[in-house]
Amino acid sequence: MTLQDTGLAAYNFAYLDEQTKRMIRRAILKAIAIPGYQVPFASREMPMPYGWGTGGVQVTASIIGPEDVLKVIDQGSDDTTNAVSIRKFFEKTAGVETTTRTGEATVIQTRHRIPEAPLKEGQVLVYQVPIPEPLRFLEPRETETRKMHALEEYGLMHVKLYEDIARNGHIATTYAYPVKVEGRYVMDPSPTPKFDNPKMDNCAALQLFGAGREKRIYAIPPYTSVVSLDFEDHPFEVNRFEQPCALCGAEGVYLDEMILDDKGGRMFCCSDTDFCEERRGEAESVSASNGEIV
């Protein structure tokens, strides 16, 4: 072996070798057939660290083709450093077209958010997942949690949520809020805020979840029932923001809190930067056609 072999030229389309892709593809098909079940797969070391999206990157690399248009977001934004890094990785290794527009993308890789604009048929949303096991913080052992899923024994999860209610008056889980998929598997939606949970239900797009370090892939096919766990007397509810986005005026969207100065000045604006920019673009063109100056 010579060191020259280590150059990028020696790597395959979308980085992964074909055997690895086949292994991941087989896992993805099983995941689609068993919605919410975590399929073990022989995750590879990727050229970015574990915990930084290696699961999502492996899934994306296995599904993407030259015709695809890729969008990568982190915390809702296309411009955060890790989103930039992953987008560049695919530009370099797969030569695919990339976009920031949700509507134009065929594959969207995300960390911690679901876009505000409704997803369409034919799109695939790929989630980066740190801890795929929703029961992990209640039971650290894989041997035990596997049994619990097998027996559909989810009492522990309900007990935990109910303890929250007893102590705080409401469920204190605000992100990675557990869901039940198609009435069978309890699933971790990845650390998206629970605000995004309702978007997963009956979604037109295919949702794939990749956990690289934990070596699991799972999926929600399009038009599949995804229900956030709750209780009759304490129904699931999403957080509401009191004010609209300070930039585009959108309501009913997830907002980031920006600290403006050291005197307590702050503003709230869209976490989904593309959604916000498109709305502002529309507003500008409307005002422009009205001959107004913005």
């Binding site: 389309f13 074909e18 599904i63 030259p66």
Partner: peptide, 19 residues
Amino acid sequence: NQVLDAQIGFAALMNALSR
């Protein structure tokens, strides 16, 4: 084309199973 044909084949299978 080992790489691109396999991707097209897989896309068809992924669509078939998810729809």
